[in-house]
Design a protein around this nucleic acid. Structure first.
Lengths: 257, 257
DNA sequence: ACCATTATTCCGTTTATCGGAACGATCTGT
DNA sequence: ACAGATCGTTCCGATAAACGGAATAATGGT
């Protein structure tokens, strides 16, 4: 899961404990939290007490187990932006069932693309290129490329400038991005053929709301052999497009309500 | 929105700033956050910086606006329990459209019921009895009563004992709860006729997963005049029941996946 | 009723947080 | 393009809070 490098500040401690609790939907005893968070018992206890006060966590008075509290639900529900993962759930499951491959949802955050959801299909060779929480420079990888391509001219150039160094870590140059963008313009989808992880490919379409906000990108990843031209064009892209449209519509509904 | 009484501890400050940001999905400048949170500029800045480190908030480098970050999305997605609000969204919208009244979703937390989602219908007289985040003793109000009634015998008596004082604040006695429970047993739904807010009524059914976990309650509230016997039995309850079943199924899917 | 385990409180020390002020960047109007 | 104002960020000494370890209370199992 997400690593928090240097644990400085109470908020980082709180985040770590939330991380721990996130992995245990049925609740955790204080000792288990201490163990997994590697904090002292006192620290864990105090942080938990503070978080209880604000509703981030809740302690079942009967079992004494700590659970994530209602406040987090409230937050994630109100912030439509944060909720896209929840809203995409069903659609991604459908895509995973149809394609049998792995489906990713990435969202933009500044010049980065962050994977916020993943669904895996039945095919025995799984391509788990991205984990939930992973950050990539925009443009690097199918989903990140779809996000990039969907933006306006000025934003693209600004992002390109900001990400040059970060992109280099993945061996991606401006020319690669230009080529990817040209392909996107022509075909309407973003593709990444074995460029990040050898042997795996992915295609992606952006999710764009009625107000033209680019809120995410849906991608399907698979081993190269499964990503044929026919399958991509006749099956995967139409399905992705349909789900992206549906998801965009649901995001629109949220924004007004 | 939710008030945090005494602002003690960094976590409470963080929570307050998250609250502020939650109300502004499009982001907020530091000064606006300072103003609304009533913290000093330095404090707000430092807390925001800490929260950025862990991904709770994100600052758009271009506009310098602060937004809620990807980490919260991750949390709400992984914790199925926190995600029920997101998953119920569509169903609640359907119920609101059908009934034209107000639809509430409450979840259990210990001996309390917390409203985590709300959808309003087209009818001009709106009954907004509960706001998102509101807490009620279990048994007080239609949704809270549905949650209560769906539990096992031991739990019900334990909750009743724990909540006696709190219930009294709403003018509800053990006898009221018993009557409500008897009605639930007979009809299969929980009803609250003008007991909390005079002139308004509500009916509710629990949402129960395949593993018999009571994960929430869907309720419809309206002015008394609209809550006739016929409409309740022939329209509202069937619709509520159907959506509750659907929601339970989706919760089940999450638990395994 | 006892013992083992776990949760919570206490306490002296340390460290992160505090607000105000200084600094630097950005925007506005002319 | 420049000056003035505004906003965001960093620096500072003082303070308060968070820290870990030990003591105490509560719980569960036998």
């Amino acid at each position: 899961m997400t690593e928090i490098a240097a644990i400085t500040g109470s908020i980082a401690r709180a985040a770590r404990i939330i991380d721990v609790l996130t992995l245990a939907p049925d609740g955790l005893a204080l000792n288990q939290i201490v163990e997994r968070s590697e904090f002292s018992k006192t620290t864990a206890f105090r942080v938990l007490a503070n978080m209880q006060d604000v509703g981030f966590v809740f302690q079942d008075p009967e079992s004494r187990l700590y659970l994530l509290g209602h406040k987090l639900a409230q937050i994630s529900q109100t912030a439509a932006r944060s909720n896209i993962a929840g809203m995409a759930q069903r659609g991604m499951a459908r895509l995973a069932a149809l394609s049998e491959d792995t489906v990713f949802l990435s969202v933009p955050e500044g010049a980065a693309a962050i994977c916020v959801a993943r669904a895996t299909g039945a095919y025995p060779i799984r391509t788990l290129t991205l984990n939930i929480g992973d950050r990539r420079p925009m443009g690097v990888g199918a989903g990140a490329l779809a996000l990039f391509c969907a933006l306006g001219d000025e934003k693209r150039t600004a992002i390109l400038a900001a990400n040059r160094g970060w992109m280099a870590e993945y061996g991606i140059t401006d020319a690669d991005i230009s080529a990817g963008f040209a392909a996107y313009q022509e075909t309407g989808y973003a593709a990444n053929i074995g460029r990040i992880v050898a042997g795996t490919s992915a295609v992606s379409v952006p999710v764009i709301t009625a107000r033209k906000r680019v809120v995410g990108a849906l991608a399907i990843g698979a081993v190269d052999a499964r990503m044929t031209f026919e399958r991509t064009n006749e099956t995967l892209i139409p399905a992705l497009t349909q789900e992206a449209t549906l998801l965009a519509r649901r995001m629109d509904e949220m924004e007004q309500g």
